[in-house]
Structure formats: structure tokens, C-alpha cells
């Protein structure tokens, strides 16, 4: 799969935006302006942006919980300020300040999330079935981490997804740590692609730090799904250089993480690697880079202003209104 110059710049721009929002979210949480958690995603954000950037607007996307899905949603085209406002409990949030870490952008195919990991495997089955029934070539993309894959819902969902040939792309962002437990303590294998292959589901392993590789693999998987060839599994090997969530212990398997190893991991920072390649290939210039960074900062600042100036959601009458549909 080849990408045009415009596509490659779009990937870069979205990655810069996602990174800028990650920094913003971390700061807002530290300043006490978030009413929710924040699970940082920097250095592991290429997979989300690469996954979502070239999806169709009506494709269904279940964003990853890490970085709360900002990379995925920015890739998908939603305006992140409504999701930021949601994190701050504002009435202007995408869930009117009720969901905080939940996202809903129906016209962009983001139909909601669950904060209980593993829901994407079975809810995707329903989306896939509906997409198949709709018959308009919609594809469902479910993002998740290696921790989530240990849920039994994976088996229940993947099994019928293959059986029913549903147009689903499962994108695993394997960063090797599930909250505080390493992959080694969680699985008797390292490449989860083998699990998918057991169902006869085509599976591929890519470098999740290489945004082009992710976009290419997901692109091929989406193509298969659109052609009615059923689900695909894309395993992106990525990294986690932060603690599980902002403020939580930077520990794994009961011990402090080896910071030398974390520094080693940081060498695989996806944005600068990509930037270097783009410059070498003459696709962007230094001036372009500055401009993109400036625009991202302005976007983030405007989103922060929007969130902070929006009213806090304290209207109790919505509780009744939201509980049941009439």
C-alpha cells in the first residue's frame, strides 16, 4: 500500500495533534482540572493515529483507553475539544459531562465505549453484524491493549466474528504491560497474532512505533473487511514509557520499573522517527514542521479555553432525561 504526500503529512499532523493533546491532558489532570483519570499515551500514540486516520467517516471505531483514545479520535476526524470538555465534566462535553472518559461522536462512527475492558470484543460483533446488514461497506475497528486481550470476551467475540465473517479489524496495541503486570506474567506467548491465527483469522505483526507501517497494515485489513472477507488482527508492537495512569506507581510485577530500560524504549519515539524520514524524503520542510506544531498548540489552547469556559454539568434534571429513551 502506498500513501500520497498529502496522506503522509496528514499522518504527521494528526500525530503531532495527538501528542499535543496528551501533554495538555496530563497538565490539566495535574492542575486538578480533570474530573476523571488520565492514562498517558505519549510514545505509544503512533498506533492509534495510524489506525484511524484513513478510515471512512461512517466506519465504526472503538478507541483505545490509553491516552483515552485521543490519537484514535483525532485520526478519525472528530473535534477533540468536546472530548476534552467531557474530561472536565462540562455540559458541552461529547457526553454532556456525564461520561467523562466516555466518548460519543455518532456521525464519526464513535458510538460509545465501556470503561470495563474487553467490551470492544463483543460489542464489535454487534457493530459488525449491523454493518454487514447495512451493506454499505462499513468497517468496524476495535482498538485495545495486551491486557484487555486476556479477557474471555476476546474468545467469545473473535470466535463469532470469524464464523459470521464480520467486517471487523482488531488492532492490538501491545505495549507489554497491562496496568502493573508484564506480558510475561500474563501470557505463555509473546505474539498475540498467534491467538487470532488459531481462529483462522489473518493476523499480522507490525512495528507500532512506525506510523506508516500501522497505517499500511490496518489499511490492508480494512480493505479485506470492506470486500467482505471477514475480520483481521493487527498487532502493533508499541511501548509504554509512563506509569499506568498519571500519578499511579511506575511499577511492574511488584517492582519499580527499570528506568534504564525505559530510557532505551524512549529511543523508539515515533514522532521524531517519522519526522526524520519525512525530512529525508523531502516530503516536509522544517518550516512545515514548525507550522504544524504551532497549529496544534493553538488548537489545544483553544480546546482548553473552550472546556474551561463551558459550564460545569450540574443540571440534575438530565438524570431522568438520560436514563430512559421516551
Amino acid at each position: 500500500m502506498k500513501f500520497s504526500k498529502k496522506d503522509l503529512i496528514k499522518l504527521y499532523t494528526n500525530l503531532v495533534r495527538a501528542r499535543t493533546f496528551d501533554m495538555l491532558c496530563t497538565r490539566l489532570l495535574a492542575e486538578g482540572k480533570f474530573v476523571s483519570f488520565y492514562h498517558e499515551g505519549a510514545w505509544g500514540d503512533a498506533a492509534g493515529v495510524g489506525t484511524a486516520t484513513f478510515l471512512r467517516k461512517d466506519d465504526i471505531l472503538y478507541p483505545h483507553h490509553r491516552a483515552h483514545g485521543f490519537p484514535h479520535m483525532i485520526g478519525k476526524g472528530v473535534d477533540p475539544k468536546y472530548y476534552l470538555a467531557e474530561h472536565c465534566g462540562r455540559a458541552t462535553g461529547c457526553c454532556s459531562g456525564v461520561g467523562t472518559v466516555h466518548a460519543l461522536f455518532e456521525e464519526y462512527g464513535i458510538l460509545g465505549q465501556s470503561a470495563i475492558l474487553g467490551a470492544q470484543f463483543t460489542v464489535s460483533v454487534g457493530w459488525g453484524l449491523a454493518a454487514k446488514k447495512n451493506g454499505t461497506g462499513q468497517v468496524v475497528v476495535a482498538s485495545f491493549g495486551d491486557g484487555t486481550l486476556a479477557r474471555g470476551t476476546w474468545h467469545e467475540g473473535a470466535n463469532v466474528a470469524v464464523l459470521w465473517k464480520l467486517p471487523i479489524v482488531y488492532v492490538l496495541e501491545n505495549n507489554g504491560i497491562a496496568q502493573y503486570v508484564s506480558l510475561e506474567k500474563a501470557y505463555p506467548l509473546k505474539d498475540m497474532a498467534s491467538l487470532a491465527a488459531g481462529y483462522g483469522m489473518p493476523a499480522v505483526v507490525v512495528d507500532g512505533q512506525d506510523i506508516v507501517a500501522v497505517a499500511e497494515a490496518v489499511g490492508e485489513a480494512v480493505k479485506r473487511a470492506r470486500q467482505g472477507k471477514g475480520p483481521t488482527f493487527v498487532e502493533c508492537k508499541t511501548i509504554r514509557v509512563t506509569s499506568h495512569g498519571y500519578g499511579s506507581p511506575h511499577m511492574v510485577d511488584g517492582e519499580q520499573r527499570d528506568m534504564n530500560m525505559v530510557e532505551e524504549l524512549k529511543k523508539r519515539e515515533p514522532l521524531s522517527m517519522y519526522e526524520k524520514n519525512l525530512l529525508k524524503q523531502g516530503i516536509i520542510t522544517k518550516e512545515d514542521i514548525e507550522e504544524i506544531a504551532k497549529a496544534a498548540k493553538e488548537e489545544a489552547a483553544a480546546a482548553e479555553k473552550f472546556a474551561m469556559e463551558s459550564p460545569i454539568q450540574e443540571d440534575a434534571s438530565i438524570l431522568d432525561q438520560y436514563l430512559y429513551a421516551e
Binding site: 493476523a203 499480522v204 505483526v205
Partner: peptide, 9 residues
């Protein structure tokens, strides 16, 4: 790492 690339798709 062998036997896992995009040629599976």
C-alpha cells in the same frame, strides 16, 4: 519475528 508480516493479509 519471522513469519508474521503483512503478507498474511
Amino acid at each position: 519475528g519471522s513469519g508474521k508480516d503483512i503478507r498474511r493479509l
